[in-house]
């Protein structure tokens, strides 16, 4: 048997570098993050407030989002999961809670981390607030918020909204 008979797989790393565009409709949102302000956008069609303003459009109305709206900083957990699985590229210590958070004044939830409480104590309806990183670490990213933590306020009844986005 020659050496070649043993070759079953070959490793071929592929590297391609891209320029990623946030798009002009995300500008006020990203500038807000640089400033510690949570800026969403209101759809001129259905009047609902998107945070973050996904691609700057309302997927229901197919319209470019309109006015800037400052939301939060507090919000309510609509649903969550406790992550126990390590995976490539993960920057967060296990286990952690990834929650859908509906910021006050926004109409769509966003995903972020919950810390400063036991995973077992996290629940749908829990009120939370952002904990920002040191300002020196800020960039145009939601990563400026290290995590959210419970505020201690009474839970909000999410009722039929539980599990909705």
């Amino acid at each position: 048997m020659s050496e070649a008979d043993g070759i079953m797989r070959l490793r071929q790393p592929i590297s391609v570098t891209y320029n990623w565009s946030a798009g002009p409709n995300a500008t006020s949102h990203l500038n807000g993050l640089l400033d510690g302000t949570l800026v969403g956008k209101r759809c001129p069609g259905c009047s609902l407030v998107y945070f973050p303003p996904r691609n700057g459009v309302c997927p229901k109305c197919a319209r470019i989002l309109g006015d800037d709206v400052v939301v939060g900083p507090r919000g309510t957990i609509t649903t969550f999961c406790v992550v126990n699985v390590p995976f490539l590229g993960q920057k967060i210590k296990l286990p952690y809670v990834a929650a859908q958070i509906l910021l006050d004044g926004a109409d769509i939830s966003m995903q972020h981390l919950i810390q400063e409480c036991e995973a077992a104590d996290v629940r749908i309806g829990m009120r939370v607030e952002p904990v920002w990183k040191d300002r020196s670490e800020w960039g145009p990213s939601l990563e400026n918020i290290a995590h959210f933590r419970p505020t201690g306020e009474p839970d909000r009844d999410m009722g039929v909204e539980a599990g909705a986005s």
């Binding site: 990623w20 946030a22 995300a26 990203l30 973050p52 609509t78 649903t79 969550f80 999961c81 992550v83 699985v85 995976f87 590229g89 993960q90 920057k91 967060i92 952690y96 990834a98 929650a99 859908q100 966003m110 995903q111 972020h112 981390l113 749908i124 145009p140 990213s141 939601l142 990563e143 918020i145 039929v160 539980a162 599990g163 909705a164």
Partner: peptide, 26 residues
């Protein structure tokens, strides 16, 4: 990971598990 976002995802399970929680509660 997508730039400007928050990398809290943990694959498909991290996306779908909150939805399952919603079903269980409902």
């Amino acid at each position: 990971p997508i730039p400007f976002g928050m990398p809290v995802h943990a694959g498909a399970g991290g996306y779908f598990s909150p939805i399952v929680r919603g079903y269980i509660k409902r």
